[in-house]
């Protein structure tokens, strides 16, 4: 079983991190980002052609983490592969030592750098979770028997800040029915809203890791508010980023805000998922200051 599944089963409050493969073949920086997380996080998500911007592959990156004795969470989106390719890559992932799979629908092609590409969406997140489940049971989606079945620890995502939240919660229940064993959330900045959300879903009995995106600048906060559905950076945080430009630039403000958020959600959920977007070197400091080391 993966470290992630075992730690969640033990009820520990844990941290997962995230790296994004590069645009090109120079993978060193991405692996360095992962090294910053060594010993600090339970597992590291590897994004899958994030934001529909063409990049180096997640399967290869996850395998490189396994080789370095770092535990990956293999993110899979449904935008670029039909059910044949998804199943095939899942079989490959198992043989390459990958245990955790995060099933997502994926951002639409129109929002990325190849807007004229053909969207696949043969399955969507719920269907992909069912697909993982089916493979684990030793069959493919057409019902054919597999010569070797892959055990996985499948997870999914949810956006607690999306309105109407009931719509998200119904879908979360479906993801659980389809086999999701853990959730990582969209970025949370409003602890009260997250507390409301957790109050409505804690009965589901599936661990939730609260998503944190490090705030790099005022521009980034405003961009997310305008363009990323379900993310709301409150004005007071934007004012803080504005007030001390040096602190914002150095990442000190991002660290402080992340630590405060962790303190706010610590008793509400089973961990945090930190999405540093390249600022992975700050993560150890956040974990230390939040007292999670």
């Amino acid at each position: 079983m993966s470290n992630l599944s075992e730690a969640l089963a033990r009820g520990e409050f844990l941290v997962t991190g995230e790296i994004g493969p590069p645009k090109g073949t120079n993978i060193e920086k991405c692996l360095e980002d992962a090294e910053h997380l060594r010993g600090k996080v339970t597992a590291i998500n590897v994004t899958d052609i994030q934001s529909a911007v063409m990049r180096f592959g997640g399967l290869a990156t996850c395998h490189m983490l396994v080789e370095r004795d770092l535990e990956p969470v293999f993110q899979m989106v449904c935008r670029d592969r039909n059910r044949l390719a998804l199943q095939s890559d899942l079989l490959s992932a198992h043989v390459l030592g990958i245990e955790n799979v995060l099933c997502l629908t994926g951002d639409h092609n129109i929002l990325g750098d190849h807007p004229d590409s053909k969207p696949v969406f043969d399955l969507e997140a719920v269907g992909l979770l069912q697909c993982v489940q089916t493979l684990m049971e030793g069959r493919d989606m057409a019902g054919n028997e597999l010569d070797g079945a892959p055990p996985f620890f499948p997870g999914a995502v949810v956006a607690p800040g999306s309105e109407p939240v009931e719509m998200q919660i119904i879908r979360m229940e479906k993801k659980i029915a389809a086999g999701a064993k853990f959730f990582q959330t969209q970025a949370v900045y409003d602890v009260d809203q997250f507390a409301d959300f957790m109050g409505r879903v804690e009965g589901f009995g599936v661990p939730v890791l609260c998503g944190l995106v490090l705030l790099k600048s005022v521009g980034m906060a405003r961009f997310m508010n305008a363009n990323v559905s379900g993310v709301n950076v409150p004005d007071r945080l934007i004012a803080r980023l504005k007030a001390d430009k040096e602190k914002t630039k150095s990442g000190e403000a991002a660290i402080e805000i992340a630590v405060e958020t962790i303190e706010g959600v610590k008793d509400l959920c089973q961990g945090v998922h930190i999405m540093p977007l390249g600022w992975d070197h700050l993560v150890p400091d956040i974990i230390d200051r939040a007292g999670l080391a």
Binding site: G106, H108, L111, G127, K174, N227
Partner: peptide, 22 residues
């Protein structure tokens, strides 16, 4: 649905009920 999803919305619903794609 811009992604032709069959099991509910993705996370791309805007606060006024629109689609983030358009």
């Amino acid at each position: 649905c811009s992604k032709s999803m069959v099991n509910g919305p993705c996370g791309g619903t805007t606060s006024d009920g629109k689609c983030e794609v358009d």
